[in-house]
Nucleic acid binder design. Structure first.
Lengths: 246, 246
DNA sequence: CGTACGATTGACCAAATGGTCAGAGTTGTG
DNA sequence: CACAACTCTGACCATTTGGTCAATCGTACG
């Protein structure tokens, strides 16, 4: 945005900046210190290929955005986490917002995947159990992704409201139709299929999003394999029983 | 923004400000421009009493923090939402962090209240149903509070990790003991009582925290009374059935 | 009325932040 | 090796942000 070339040797900028000269047009006087030539000692970061570099930045950004939200995250912090100088992030992504969107995009793909098991041909109990277990697995293996997603929704989904309506809604309507079909066949208790998904999402992702609270209440530092298994078993059996699939 | 007119005839502060003079002790030379006396036209905000003013600020802060997170919220935005000049916030709360903590404190109290219905003498089905309904009601009536709380947890609970351990954990252990007691009496299905609370919290608060997603999937702008009732009925019956209390 | 005290506010600042740029290093290709 | 294209990076900037201050206002009380 606004990549103005800048002039080179203009006279000292006037210190007073009235509202008149709003646009950076007044940006002159680039009398920069000599660029410390030959001063660079540490061998410069060797160039991985573009895709790798971008992936590394996205991974770092995911952690930082998850930990501080979009507003609280700083490009400096992301650069530090990625082990790169800050201008590199802009080189690859242009802006903080664009980087954030790249992170969200990756998350969305992963987030939608588990729903593949919900198809009419499947056996309800097995399909739902598989779906829930996959969601739980995601919560434990990719908690940062879940938190970025949660954070975005929490704050009104400014970047992906459109995606929710264009992509998520049609998909969920199809999946809900499958559930309704099973209910009509008397294979499971009658319930509101869309709300069932809301409950499953909530019950599973809470282990990623609110891990701190869960650990605090359980009196642990982290959730080890065993605790994860117990949590998974709890959610699976509670929901399945709730669906009349015990 | 920040179009400050700059001082008119001030004694030109020394431009170099080394790290030596860290503490504002060095704040001298306050030769400020004459305070535009008699320039104030709009009648100044009439003083409500201290408690009212603080409550109004907290309410405004809750909305802003909910919408942008701690990092993304600005004191300016909160001041605007409260209809006050920014220094007022600092006058009453000292710092952004202190204001944030005041918001969290209020939220915590509300958040814990519904658990009062979970007592050994109660009838399991009625008690749990009442608890869930109260949680749902909170989600619909105080969504901002829920989001502030969710946001804080999401980002690692930097301000209330201690509270979680000192206050929430003991409380939940007592409540879990009540559930365990009911289970031991054969009044409900055997399940992990602490995880049951995690699921209830998640299933109910998702309607406040992730309202945008839910509305998008349902194809609505907001959740009206009827939609709220349907959601509540869904959560109540799914969880009760899951607890073997159908 | 006068005065002490708390409340209110415009003006201000240092620090941090997102973003930019030009120059320099690397790598692939003929 | 020469050249071009791509990548990396230190130095820089405009703007925003949390926070501060002194001056002012309003009012309860003697």
């Amino acid at each position: 945005m606004a990549t103005r070339p800048r002039d080179i040797a203009a006279p000292v900028r006037s210190a007073s900046r009235t509202a008149a000269a709003r646009k950076p047009a007044a940006t002159a006087a680039r009398g920069r210190a000599a660029p410390t030539r030959a001063a660079r000692q540490g061998p410069r970061q060797q160039s991985r290929n573009r895709a790798d570099q971008q992936a590394a930045i996205i991974a770092a950004a995911e952690r930082v955005f998850a930990g501080a939200g979009f507003g609280g995250a700083t490009m400096q912090a992301i650069a530090l986490a990625a082990g790169l100088p800050k201008p590199n992030l802009h080189y690859y992504f242009g802006s903080k917002k664009a980087l954030y969107q790249a992170v969200l995009e990756r998350t969305l793909r992963e987030w939608l995947e588990p729903a593949d098991t919900i198809v009419a041909e499947a056996e309800p109990r097995a399909a739902l159990e598989c779906y829930i277990r996959e969601k739980m697995r995601q919560s434990f293996t990719r908690p940062y992704a879940s938190r970025v997603w949660a954070n975005e929704l929490l704050h009104g989904a400014p970047e992906l409201r459109g995606t929710l309506i264009r992509t998520l809604r049609p998909l969920m309507r199809r999946k809900a139709a499958v559930i309704d079909h099973w209910i009509a066949q008397g294979l499971m208790a009658p319930l509101d299929s869309l709300h069932l998904f809301f409950t499953i999402w909530a019950a599973t992702q809470t282990y990623a999003d609110f891990e701190i609270q869960i650990c605090a209440v359980l009196g642990r530092e982290t959730l080890d394999r065993e605790a994860q298994a117990r949590a998974t078993q709890h959610v699976v059996s509670l929901i399945l029983r709730g669906c009349g699939l015990a």
